[in-house]
Design a protein around this nucleic acid. Structure first.
Length: 236
DNA sequence: AAATATTACAACCGCAGTCCC
DNA sequence: CGGGACTGCGGTTGTAATATT
């Protein structure tokens, strides 16, 4: 049996304080990322390494963009989700300054509902057979589940052509036009995932020595060939 | 104004992959 | 080669903020 990632008795949990943030930032500025296991002690933090890593990656990193998602970012997320399923880190890798957590949250809180409202099944990105107007709660949004927080309508998407359980690395994410090999009934997406990055974003590319995938330049110069504002109606 | 419902998002948990001895 | 340590990922939860009744 693996031992827990940290001694839970000696670690703080929950929201990070300003002082903790500053300690973490200061430490990483001096020593760089990595060695998350030993970092908390070295930095004088009563947190487990996992928590430090998450805090840094999702919130403190200087190259994070934060703020609302632009329309082209939304489009890209939707397209990439159609291709990749819930592979949030891959999707986020194509969105400079965005984290997998941020993309995932944005999907669950905004984009899923947007698709559903348009009569599109967010799990497979197909038009729902009956143009159903989902039951709306008094706010005009959709009642998702019995619990109030995270939408639970996202069961493991085993039907997704690229998603298999228990193996993360056997996905064939070769290219957009070739992504649905086992779905003969599904039309070819023929997505071109390149977009023109608006000038402010281009500056971020300099920082992307940190980016996991720097090899695929084509994916950094995004240019949508689908011109519709919401490029979802890829299926008839 | 208070109570209740809903949303948004930060953070946690557990699993799986990789590395290294 | 096997096993433990470490890291990263995706799902889920907790809760503050906001909207509605």
């Amino acid at each position: 049996m693996r031992k827990p990632c940290c001694d839970k008795q000696d670690t703080n949990k929950g929201a990070w304080s300003k002082q903790e943030d500053e300690k973490l930032i200061e430490y990483i500025r001096k020593h760089g990322e990595g060695c998350w296991r030993t970092l908390p002690k070295a930095a004088g933090l009563l947190r487990c390494g996992k928590s430090c890593r998450l805090r840094w990656i999702n919130y403190l990193r200087p190259d994070l963009k934060r703020g609302n998602f632009a329309e082209d970012e939304e489009d890209l997320i939707i397209k990439l989700h159609a291709l990749l399923g819930n592979r949030w880190s891959l999707i986020a890798g194509r969105l400079p300054g965005r984290t997998d957590n941020e993309v995932k949250n944005y999907w669950n809180s905004h984009l899923r509902r947007k698709l559903i409202n348009m009569g599109i099944d967010p799990n497979n990105h197909r038009l729902t057979t009956h143009t159903f107007a989902p039951p709306k709660n008094p706010h005009g949004s959709i009642s998702t589940s019995a619990t109030s927080s995270a939408p639970k309508i996202n069961p493991p998407n085993n039907n997704h052509p690229l998603v298999k359980s228990h193996s993360r690395d056997n996905y064939h994410v070769s290219d957009a036009g070739n992504c649905l090999p086992h779905e003969p009934s599904l039309p070819d997406l023929n997505l071109d995932l390149t977009i023109n990055i608006p000038p402010p974003l281009v500056a971020n590319v300099e920082d992307e020595g940190k980016q996991k995938d720097t090899s695929n330049d084509a994916c950094r110069e995004h240019e949508f060939t689908q011109s519709s504002p919401v490029p979802l109606l890829l299926f008839r």
